[in-house]
Measured scan of single mutants.
Amino acid sequence: TEVDLHLGDITIKLKDVSEEIVKRAKELFKNGWSAEFVKKWIEEAVK
């Protein structure tokens, strides 16, 4: 499945990412993480 994760003005296309990771990524962004950091976190999380 593909998900578009909207973080501010940046959209990250996610492939084969669990709902849990998407939820967590949104929380991290809301908590002040930059979109770049969230993207890196996701990449690490799906390895």
Rank of each mutant, 00 (worst) to 15 (best):
Gly32Cys: 05
Asp4Phe: 07
Lys39Asn: 06
Ile21Ser: 01
Lys13Phe: 06
Trp33Arg: 09
Asp16Lys: 05
Val38Ile: 14
Lys47Phe: 04
Leu7Trp: 07
Trp41Gln: 00
Asn31Gln: 14
Ile42Cys: 02
Glu43Ile: 08
Glu20Ser: 11
Val3Tyr: 09
Trp33Ala: 14
Glu36Met: 04
Gly8Pro: 03
Lys40Leu: 14
Ala25Thr: 01
Trp41Ile: 02
Ser34Cys: 07
Leu5Cys: 05
Trp33Lys: 12
Gly32Tyr: 01
Lys23Ser: 12
Lys13Ala: 09
Trp41Gly: 00
His6Lys: 13
Leu5Lys: 02
Glu27Gly: 03
Val38Ser: 00
Lys30Gly: 10
Val46Arg: 07
Leu28Cys: 04
Thr11Pro: 03
Ser18Gln: 08
Lys23Cys: 10
Val46Asp: 03
Val38Lys: 00
Trp33Asp: 04
Glu2Cys: 10
Ile10Phe: 10
Leu7Ile: 09
Ile10Gln: 08
Val46Asn: 06
Ala45His: 13
Glu2Tyr: 12
Phe29Met: 06
Ile42Glu: 00
Glu43Leu: 05
Leu28Ala: 03
Val3Phe: 14
Glu19Met: 12
Glu2Phe: 13
Glu20Lys: 07
Leu7Asn: 02
Leu5Asn: 03
Trp41Asp: 00
Glu36Lys: 03
Val22Trp: 06
Ile21Leu: 09
Arg24Cys: 10
Lys23Trp: 05
Thr11Trp: 02
Glu44Val: 09
Val22Asp: 01
Arg24Phe: 12
Trp41Met: 05
Gly32Asp: 02
Glu44Phe: 11
Arg24Asp: 05
Ala25Met: 02
His6Pro: 08
Glu27Arg: 04
Ser18Trp: 10
Glu43Met: 08
Leu5Asp: 02
Glu2Gly: 09
Glu36Trp: 02
Val17Phe: 05
Glu2Asn: 13
Glu44Asp: 14
Phe29His: 06
Thr1Gln: 13
Asp16Tyr: 07
Arg24Gln: 15
Val38Leu: 04
Glu19Gln: 11
Gly8His: 05
Asp16Ile: 04
Gly32Pro: 00
Glu2Asp: 13
Lys23Thr: 15
Glu44Leu: 11
Ile12Asp: 03
Trp33Val: 10
Phe37Arg: 13
Trp33Gly: 05
Thr11Ile: 14
Glu36Pro: 03
Ser34Arg: 04
Leu28Glu: 01
Asp16Gly: 15
Thr11His: 10
Val3Gly: 08
Lys26Gln: 12
Leu7His: 03
Lys23Pro: 00
Asn31Ile: 07
Asp4Asn: 12
Asp4His: 15
Ile10Asp: 06
Glu27Ala: 07
Thr11Tyr: 04
Lys15Pro: 05
Glu19Ala: 11
Phe37Glu: 14
Lys47Glu: 09
Ile12Gln: 03
Gly8Gln: 04
Ala45Trp: 11
Glu44Tyr: 10
Lys39Ser: 11
Lys13His: 14
Ile42Asp: 00
Ile12Arg: 03
Asp4Trp: 06
Ile21Pro: 00
Lys47Leu: 12
Phe37Ser: 15
Lys15His: 13
Phe29Glu: 01
Phe29Gln: 01
Val3Thr: 11
Lys47Tyr: 04
Arg24Val: 11
Val38Phe: 01
Lys30Thr: 13
Ala35Met: 04
Glu27Lys: 05
Lys15Gly: 09
Ile12Ser: 03
Glu19Asp: 15
Lys13Gln: 12
Ile42Met: 05
Glu43Arg: 02
